[in-house]
């Protein structure tokens, strides 16, 4: 009886934590543990004979930062991540604004168009983009027949093609937070702005734009992190002359069997994402202190 009561009390106290159990059973062994192993490997030494040797050295990190080959990979990837995030913002912002402000009956259709890329497998979509961007693809055929160009412009297996693919892949992650933050803007605020003497442009610039910044930041974070670690698009649509991070890590680990080097690169990639999140959140707190309490 007493034991039963004590057990019941223990369950009651542990109750709230039990809700975390399903997630923890997956996250701890399959995510936290591998990251810990990566962290450990990144300070080990690669060895031609023994694959990887226990040690505690910084040489892996030093090499990937100082060696131009690896440094280029990081620079390339960061450039593409910034570029794609920016492109997604430029495309996504007006789209989201139209969706929220003007789209009436076409709204479900437009939302569906946003969601589709999330539903369809990325491989299927890449093949679609290949058909469009290939030398004999839709874009080139059209431009050739219109006489705009004389020879096909190389898009596929070039940076351009990869960026097109990446932008399409991550656009929904930009649009959805933007739509969310714009939809939250009270119509009365727009009326208030106009009623106080502001024209449409001023209202847009001083009311709508600042209030959609939290959505833009959230979208930027999602797209940036996604592009930084994307493996499929650089592999299928990019070029080996412009190396990206995720495929390089894969090659190091699987082709070169440099587990320590690839581990260090993976950790740096993780740190880059964390640094980006911290920086953008600090910037948001500094320049939009109202956003947290909204």
């Amino acid at each position: 009886m007493a034991a039963g009561a004590r057990f019941a009390r223990a369950v009651r106290r542990a109750g709230p934590w039990l809700w975390l159990l399903p997630a923890m059973t997956v996250l701890v062994p399959f995510f936290l543990l591998p990251v810990a192993v990566l962290l450990r490997n990144s300070v080990y030494r690669d060895d031609p004979g023994a694959l990887i040797v226990p040690d505690f050295v910084a040489t892996n990190y030093l090499r990937i930062i100082t060696d131009p080959y690896y440094a280029d990979v990081f620079v390339n990837t960061l450039m593409v991540a910034f570029g794609v995030s920016f492109a997604a913002l430029m495309i996504g912002y007006p789209f989201a604004y139209y969706l929220v402000r003007w789209a009436g009956r076409s709204r479900p259709f437009l939302l569906w168009a946003v969601y589709t890329p999330l539903i369809v497998s990325v491989i299927v979509r890449v093949f679609g983009w290949m058909v469009i961007t290939a030398d004999s693809g839709l874009i080139n055929t059209a431009l050739l027949s219109m006489g705009v160009i004389e020879r096909p412009v190389r898009l596929l297996y070039e940076v351009a093609g990869m960026v097109i693919g990446l932008t399409h892949r991550y656009l929904p992650l930009m649009v959805l937070p933007l739509v969310n933050s714009m939809a939250k803007i009270d119509r009365a605020l727009l009326a208030a702005s106009v009623g106080l003497g502001a024209g449409a442009a001023r209202t847009q610039l001083y009311v709508v734009l600042p209030l959609s910044i939290p959505g833009a930041v959230a979208g930027f974070q999602l797209v940036f992190a996604g592009v930084l670690s994307d493996f499929v698009l650089p592999n299928l649509m990019g070029t080996t002359r412009f190396r990206m991070l995720a495929p390089t890590i894969y090659d190091e680990a699987v082709a070169n069997l440099s587990w320590a080097t690839s581990a260090a690169m993976a950790i740096v990639m993780l740190l880059l994402v964390v640094a980006m999140l911290v920086c953008t959140n600090l910037a948001l707190r500094r320049f939009a202190p109202w956003a947290r309490t909204l």
Binding site: A188, L189, A192, G195, A288, W290
Partner: peptide
């Protein structure tokens, strides 16, 4: 030249 006070005030939250 009208000034309006809205039902829920419609203050600009970011200002």
């Amino acid at each position: 030249e009208t000034g309006m006070v809205f039902q829920h005030y419609a203050l600009f939250p970011h200002m």
